[in-house]
Amino acid sequence: MTTRFVVGYDGSTASRRALDFALERAEASGAEVLVAHILEWSPYSFLTPNELEERHMRRKEELARAESALIAPLKSELEASPVPVETTLKYGNVADTLCALAKDSGATQIFIGRKGEGGGFAARVFGSVAGTLAQCAPVPCTIVP
C-alpha cells in the first residue's frame, strides 16, 4: 500500500513551504502527495434571494478560477517531480475538510503552513486552521512555520 500525504495549499508562501516540505519527505519515503485547495464555505450562512439564484453560477466561476489560477500552474510545475502528485478542489470549512480528505483518501499525514506568529485577536477568538488541525486531525499533522 502506498503512503499518501495530504497538503493544504492556498497559493500563499506559507502553504508553498508546507508543500515543499511534504514533497521532500514524500520523495524520501516513496509517498504520494494529495494537494488540496479548500474554498471556505458554510452551508449555514445567510444569502439574499439574488445570491441564492446566482449561487450555482458563482460556484462554477469560483471553481474555474481556482483551477486556472492555482491548480493548473502548480500541476505543470510539478510535472517533472519524482513524487506522484494529485490535486483536489473542495468547498467547506478548511480544517474539517482536510481531516475528512485525510480519512477518505487513507492518508497518513497532513501538512499545512502557518501564516502568523501566534495569531491575532481573531485567531484567539475563532481559532486558526493550524490550531484546529493540531487538535482534530485524525492522522499526524505537520505544521510548517
Partner: peptide, 8 residues
C-alpha cells in the same frame, strides 16, 4: 458543498 444548502 458550495451550492445553495437547504438551510440557506
Amino acid at each position: 458543498a458550495g451550492e445553495v444548502s437547504h438551510f440557506q
